[in-house]
Amino acid sequence: MKMAWIRAFEYKATVYGFRLGNIVEILFQVVIWTAIYKSTAMVNGYTYNDMMTYVIIGWLFISVTQNYGMDDVIGRDIRQGTLSAYLLKPLSYLRYSVLYSLGRVSLATFSGVVIQGFFILIFYKHVLPPSSVLNIFLILVMVFLGYFIRLFLSIAIGAIAFWTTETDGLFSFASTLIKFLSGGFFPLNLLPNSLVSLSSFFPFAYIIFFPTQLYLGKISTNQGLIGIGVEVLWLIGLYGIIKFVWKKGIKIYEGVGI
């Protein structure tokens, strides 16, 4: 964790630039929705305040569940052979990846909370409070599990580098797909109902969309609990997939550069 913090502070301009990009993206969404609500009071069951809350609170969830390219970090370690150094150490590389990612996300959580606090202050009239105290607890659990779902997905995707050196396109594709399917650009229920129902069977929507729906009270506490159950099942499934893929991958790992 300490290593991740040191690295982040070493590349301050990168961190500031990234955050500035986030601010532009949030402002863009706020402006778009403000313009849309000038001609209508309701969009598919969302009032203006619902939508502002979705954008601002949703971005908080994006910030804390992101792992900032762990797939790329793992893929690079495999491709460049730096994985070999970790294999020699009395430390599981997968465990190291989880801890390293936690270090990275702790800084992101801090800066993300600061930025979202700033946005909540500016738009305090339009950001709604959470639907209930119990839901706050469920949301915390959901977001916590959502972080690990995203991380496990990244580790599984990063492990593709065992089989091919062409990983950049795959990582970029996966990142775009995950952001959209998790509701990072707009609420998924603006799309046809069949797609929303389909999304509830996949892990992506539980990273942003379902926690914000719970926050807004658009799904019941029971549905939230079911969502947590689905997340746990996916985590177990993804863990199994990672273990299987890693075991197979290590067998064909060539350790480039040794």
Binding site: T164, E166, D168, G169, L170, S172, F173, T176, L177, F180
Partner: peptide
């Protein structure tokens, strides 16, 4: 693989 992934990524976005 990169070629197909980047192209699909663009169309999906």
């Amino acid at each position: 693989i990169d070629f197909v992934s980047y192209l699909f990524g663009k169309f999906i976005r």
